[in-house]
């Protein structure tokens, strides 16, 4: 009982709804079950929609030419700053470029920046945090003070400095964003590891003579990873936005095809006359982040043994 109550609190509403639906109808609760069954369906549909959205965006990244109706570089001077219409689904920008096509073509760089920088950040931050939390002592102090120093500089400023030092380019932008996100991941991972390290089953494992390295890999890490996963899915969005900020300042990917972030910042000046230029790239980011979150939530449930066995 206690376990499920605590888990439900953290996992949010979706899971609770689904769980209620999955369970057998308890006696004397007919009126409730009919209601929950409906919502159980909607939660599943939502995950399905998220899956379709992510698949679509991935397709956009891989084969933009097949999806976009226009070329992203084609400037139609006859149709500058046109509102969404049948011809231009999401309108046109100040050069007369089709916004929908721009978004489709910008997907590749945006996803690359988002996913790669999160992966690199999680990898570095997670490793440093695990080391600090598991080894403890002086190593912990040194690593964490280093993280504190990094944390005192605002993330975007740090990324800016790194990007400025390394020069523009996709790889450098990914590195800059990743490094600026490292302290956050490291802190969360360290806290998690320190909490798990004191659990009874770690002591039990030590008592049977298991090696520290095997305890770390087989017990501590799998049990500590969940919050980092959540943080990573949320980090996707902010990474894309950070990439946008850098692009805006001229430190991003300097190409004629702007990524979502660049689109967003370029359209900002026209917000009063042409809202569609920055609204739709923004919605694309939201759609992507939301979908990834939904799928991540579902996936975390699927690998949690506590939910696997429950009837």
């Amino acid at each position: 009982m206690k376990h499920s109550a605590a888990a439900a609190k953290t996992s949010g509403r979706l899971r609770r709804i689904r769980k209620a639906g999955l369970d057998k109808a308890p006696y004397g609760a007919q009126h409730r079950t009919s209601g929950t069954r409906l919502r159980f369906g909607s939660a599943d549909v939502l995950t399905g929609v998220a899956g379709i959205a992510v698949s679509f965006l991935v397709l956009c990244a891989l084969i933009p030419g097949w999806i976009a109706p226009y070329s992203p570089t084609e400037m139609n001077t006859a149709a500058i700053l046109q509102a969404p219409s049948v011809l231009h689904l999401l309108g046109t920008d100040y050069f007369g470029r089709d916004v929908f096509s721009l978004i489709v073509y910008g997907t590749r760089d945006s996803l690359l920046i988002g996913i790669c920088s999160v992966l690199v950040g999680v990898l570095i931050g997670g490793t440093l945090g695990s080391l600090a939390g598991y080894v403890g002592g002086k190593l912990d102090t040194v690593l964490m003070r280093l993280m504190d120093v990094l944390l005192t500089v605002p993330g975007i400023l740090l990324a800016l400095t790194i990007a400025a030092a390394l020069g523009p380019g996709l790889r450098n932008i990914v590195l800059a964003i990743a490094i600026s996100s490292v302290p956050g991941y490291a802190r969360v991972m360290r806290g998690q590891i320190m909490a798990i390290r004191r659990r009874g089953y770690i002591f039990a494992s030590r008592a049977i003579g298991a090696r520290p390295s095997s305890i770390l890999i087989r017990h501590v890490l799998p049990n500590s990873a969940a919050p980092l996963l959540v943080m990573a899915t949320l980090g996707l969005g902010s990474s894309i936005l950070a990439g946008a900020g850098l692009s805006f300042l001229g430190l991003g990917v300097l190409k004629e095809i702007p990524d979502w972030g660049a689109l967003l910042s370029q359209g900002r000046g026209y917000l009063t006359v042409a809202w569609w230029i920055c609204t739709f790239p923004g919605l694309a980011i939201t759609l992507f982040v939301l979908s990834v979150n939904l799928i991540g939530d579902r996936w975390r449930d699927a690998v949690d043994p506590k939910r696997k066995g429950k009837v």
Binding site: A8, K19, A29, T36
Partner: peptide, 8 residues
């Protein structure tokens, strides 16, 4: 009332 429904 529990997330799983009403129990006595």
């Amino acid at each position: 009332h529990t997330p799983r429904g009403t129990l006595t």
